[in-house]
């Protein structure tokens, strides 16, 4: 039954222009970024690895932001449009409901990744960096978006309001994003190490830097960063589990 929810929501994304507009906007952002990187008098003289690292941060950051906004609306609009009661009056289990919505967000990410690929290929032309970059962008993008989606779903079940869910999610995104924007040279010492350990976005960017700039492309060299992201996703999963239990106890109609 999760496939029914998945199909319904994907069609909603397209027919209501939600994902369509986001894909278009992100394509425009990538276009401007790539063009500037390659033609700007100073930026185009960046080392190609640094160019890709910058592009990688933009791809992952933009996709994550879109995923958070999308995930914030998927469950909460069912409450606000009052379709949730009819959904749970049908034989649809909560588990399938969540899985279908989750697959919708991951599908949007897959589309955004596909949109980004030509830009990566053009920016990395002449080097042998595209394959490793695309592989790591896919890995980290998927893990980050999966983790944040699960977290946002947990908030959706608690708040049942799009506005509150989105506000909280964006604050969490900023809290993760701001330290990640600091240059590696500024992040020294034990505080910086703790931030990288608990901040999945920082870990992803640091790993991309490790792969592209320092040429440590093996998984074993990036294991600590992967661990940080997996840990975050696991914690988000626990939060969702608890939220769903609270939702089931309170009931579909909040008592």
């Amino acid at each position: 039954m999760h496939k029914l929810i998945w199909k319904k929501d994907i069609l909603a994304e397209i027919y209501t222009w939600k994902s369509a507009l986001w894909l278009l906007l992100t394509a425009l952002i990538y276009s401007v970024t790539c063009y500037l990187l390659l033609t700007n008098k100073e930026l185009s003289l960046l080392d190609q690895t640094e160019m890709l690292w910058l592009l990688g941060k933009i791809i992952i950051g933009a996709s994550l932001l879109v995923a958070i906004i999308d995930a914030s609306s998927l469950i909460t609009t069912e409450f606000e449009q009052e379709t949730i009661e009819d959904l749970f009056l049908s034989p649809l289990p909560v588990r399938d409901f969540i899985l279908g919505k989750f697959l919708t967000v991951m599908s949007v990410w897959a589309l955004m990744y596909a949109v980004a690929v030509p830009y990566v290929l053009v920016s990395s032309a002449g080097s042998n960096l595209s394959a490793v970059f695309l592989a790591y962008a896919a890995l980290y993008g998927t893990l980050l978006i999966a983790g944040f989606t699960v977290l946002v779903f947990g908030l959706s079940f608690l708040y049942r309001s799009f506005k509150n869910t989105l506000t909280t999610s964006l604050v969490l995104f900023l809290a993760a994003g701001i330290p990640a924007l600091f240059a590696a040279t500024l992040k020294t010492g034990i505080v910086a190490s703790v931030i990288t350990a608990i901040n999945p976005l920082d870990a992803a960017f640091a790993s991309l830097d490790n792969v592209l700039v320092d040429y440590h492309a093996s998984l074993s060299a990036n294991w600590p960063y992967l661990l940080s992201i997996l840990g975050f996703s696991a914690a988000a999963g626990v939060f969702l589990f608890v939220s769903v239990r609270i939702f089931e106890k309170r009931g579909v109609i909040k008592e």
């Binding site: 909603a12 449009q81 009052e82 379709t83 009819d86 749970f88 034989p91």
Partner: peptide, 17 residues
């Protein structure tokens, strides 16, 4: 969630798109 009951609730409950 039983298939023995059907409900027409007073909620809006429609996907207008």
């Amino acid at each position: 969630r039983s298939d023995k009951i059907g409900v027409l609730s007073e909620s809006k409950g429609l996907y207008e798109w």
